[in-house]
């Protein structure tokens, strides 16, 4: 474990806690894309299948349980909670996210490190995570007004993968044979997708005005 990875995990944890806090306290999920939340639930479900077969550390297992629990409970809140579900703007959140799942699955079947069930699903979860934010970014473009909790959620979510890139560089430099091109490229693509959001988020923060994304 290195400081970059710890910072990445804590930033990731903060992003889901910000979202859960928002939904749980103000009982609203306005501006949040259910599609992105469903994709994240699939990402965690397919990535943490090894939670039963391999044990790395208490920390690793605990964080997996937290990410699984939080992502599924956010989906549950947005789909079934009587108050929250009414605040979900279904007609704006129209990204065909299933069109993201299939190509990622096909790509994972083609490009992976080992052709085993767990490894292919793990690779699929990497590719899917890279694009999972798209429905949320599209929704933010549409609704244009971003309440700062949703803005913080997306900002933290993008930041965590940025820290992971620093972690991969550190591990590449300090651990022999630590080479995982698939992870690195997927992580880089994921972070680049946030680039324009980061730009506008930083501009709004610098000019201290409400975050507005261009149409």
């Amino acid at each position: 474990m290195n400081i970059f990875r710890l910072a990445g995990d804590m930033t990731h944890l903060a992003s889901v806690l910000v979202l859960l806090l928002k939904i749980h306290t103000i009982k609203s999920c306005a501006g949040v894309s259910l599609k992105t939340q469903e994709l994240y639930a699939i990402v965690f479900a397919t990535r943490y299948l090894d939670i039963f077969t391999s044990f790395y550390s208490i920390y690793n297992t605990l964080m997996k349980l937290i990410f699984l629990g939080s992502s599924f409970s956010i989906v549950w809140y947005m789909r079934y909670h009587k108050t929250v579900r009414r605040t979900y703007d279904r007609e704006q959140d129209t990204f065909r996210h299933w069109f993201l799942v299939l190509p990622c699955l096909l790509l994972a079947l083609l490009i992976h490190e080992k052709f085993t069930f767990l490894e292919v699903l793990w690779t699929f979860s990497l590719y899917l995570e890279a694009v999972a934010i798209l429905p949320q970014l599209v929704l933010l473009q549409r609704t244009r007004n971003i309440d700062n909790l949703t803005g913080q959620y997306v900002f933290l979510l993008g930041g965590y993968r940025g820290f992971y890139i620093l972690n991969w560089i550190y591990r590449y430099l300090t651990e022999p044979h630590f080479v995982h091109w698939i992870t690195w490229i997927a992580g880089l693509v994921q972070t680049l997708l946030y680039a324009d959001f980061f730009y506008y988020y930083f501009q709004s923060w610098k000019n201290n005005k409400k975050l507005q994304l261009p149409a």
Binding site: N60, M63, W122, Y164
Partner: peptide
């Protein structure tokens, strides 16, 4: 060893 480390990240 390396393989074991492959998926020690979240």
């Amino acid at each position: 060893e390396t393989d074991q480390n492959a998926h020690d990240e979240l």
